[in-house]
Design a protein around this nucleic acid. Sequence first.
DNA 1: AGTTGAATGTTATGTTGTATCATTAGCCCA
DNA 2: TGGGCTAATGATACAACATAACATTCAACT
Lengths: 157, 157
Amino acid sequence: MTDGTAHIHDHEHCIDTAIARARELCGAREVKLTPIREKVLEIVWRSHKPVGAYDVLDQLARTHKAARPPTVYRALDFLMAEGLIHKIESLNAYLGCGEAGHMHESQFLICRACGTAEEIVDDALDAALDAATKRSGFTVERKVVEIAGVCARCQTL
Amino acid sequence: MTDGTAHIHDHEHCIDTAIARARELCGAREVKLTPIREKVLEIVWRSHKPVGAYDVLDQLARTHKAARPPTVYRALDFLMAEGLIHKIESLNAYLGCGEAGHMHESQFLICRACGTAEEIVDDALDAALDAATKRSGFTVERKVVEIAGVCARCQTL
DNA sequence: AGTTGAATGTTATGTTGTATCATTAGCCCA
DNA sequence: TGGGCTAATGATACAACATAACATTCAACT
Ligand SMILES: [Zn+2]
Ligand SMILES: [Zn+2]
Ligand SMILES: [Zn+2]
Ligand SMILES: [Zn+2]
């Protein structure tokens, strides 16, 4: 397939689930998932491809004329702080988190052919990261792991 | 210490060694380490902190009035292609490679207190990365591993 | 000398992200 | 009920990072 979705599925369901989960979490944490923040979350979730801030802005502006870069960056910052989205540093782009709720280190497989970024959770990998830093006496605050290449699907096309 | 060097050492020696090694490698590969490229390599090597492209430009312009952004980005691209420097994606900055010559995956420990980035080579970590991708049938082309936190030195200050 | 291709010069523009201050909206409480 | 507080958003401007496109120069080879 060429549209970058990892596989055929009911993607509206992905989006709805993510938003419902976000509402729950924000309610429990007593932070505000405002209309703008929710809309930005929905836009980010509309694809399984990382999406740039200015793409988000273009889409947000369709329904929210006052939208400007700070509008978007504030919403993205909030969503990242709450663990609802991640930033892919090597792409300067943002992606919905499928594991929102329990804080975790994000690790991504990024396909240059279809553009998808799959979030993986690999405890052995995470342990190896910790071991590497412990040896140096380094205190970890953030781990960026972004593996670029070609996904299994794209190799068979 | 506050200047961001990892430890007290003869840093001129670091620079000289890196440039000498770069000359060797480029000679052997029959690619051209031109004056501009060599100067950019030296500027990048002047610290153990990742340095932004426009910082490089400012420094390059001192001796090379015609320098413009493309001048710098072309040189940086060349140096990356030859494995002489790395880009730190999470900082949009560039750092000399201490292991130039044998191609390798780069893994960095980035201290937010002193700004240094230490390149580590951890085979167990690299193996864990490969294992994580093999399971998914993903073909790896590039691995970005950037661990941010506080280095051992800065914790004791 | 003439040809060729790589490197650099030059101008302009595209892309990503922040600083700053003004305004608005929700909430608490006198 | 309405003042006073804070969080969120609006609005303008700019900073920081990166590339497109085309012209010119330079070195190497004939
Ligand atoms: Zn989906
Ligand atoms: Zn793919
Ligand atoms: Zn040094
Ligand atoms: Zn440090």
